[in-house]
Design a protein around this nucleic acid. Structure first.
Lengths: 105, 105
DNA sequence: GCATTATATTCGTTGACATGAATATTCATG
DNA sequence: CATGAATATTCATGTCAACGAATATAATGC
């Protein structure tokens, strides 16, 4: 996995931007108003997201529309798939339940 | 999604620890030697991972065995699943290809 | 070309975090 | 209970990133 993807998503406001863009592309102004961010904040966070490849930009007149890019999200999803056994393995799951009961007791 | 999970994973050495633990629980010493980290580094990163719920610890004699916990990884995986349409939607995918061709031209 | 709108960038400040060295703590054993 | 092994914590330092204010740039229409 690319830590840059995770770092970009780990900032709460950027995560909110990503969640907003899930519904479709939006101009910067829309993002900064809806999420109640300063305009510079919106621009800077979008810059980081773009550097990480998580969004792409398309200009229309003076506006810049940002939209999600599939690749990093897909790769993160695939990486997590390789950990599937961690939550599907019944023995490990049982082990964990026992552990958590211990802590409560 | 919980940004704490992403923040914990976004640090490269912590990501390496998680990948090492995928194969099974290990004591701190094993981690710090294998990953060529200082002992204090290993302990501190494990502390962060533990705070994020990504690992659990079980003492055996003087050693502390750390192992992956399923929950945060599972939740991250599920969160990404809600973005599946981003990479499965053919129209968006096509749109992206066109965009990338433009940038190369 | 000027005013306006939309966005990007710069800059200084502040807070968070990674690091390494040193020290403290925990636990088994003689 | 003193010792050594394994791990955790403290502390000082340096670096980086987020923020807000201000300024710069880009594109449109008059």
């Amino acid at each position: 996995m690319n830590p840059e993807t995770l770092a970009a998503l780990s900032e709460p406001n950027r995560l909110r931007i990503v969640e907003l863009l899930r519904a479709g592309p939006r101009p910067v102004n829309d993002i900064h108003v809806r999420l109640k961010l300063r305009q510079s904040q919106a621009s800077q966070h979008l810059k980081v997201l773009k550097a990480a490849g998580l969004v792409a930009m398309e200009p229309r007149a003076q506006q810049r529309f940002y939209r999600l890019r599939a690749e990093p999200l897909k790769q993160l999803h695939e990486w997590l798939d390789t950990y599937r056994h961690v939550w599907e393995d019944r023995f490990e799951a049982l082990d964990e339940i026992v552990e958590e009961l211990k802590q409560k007791a």
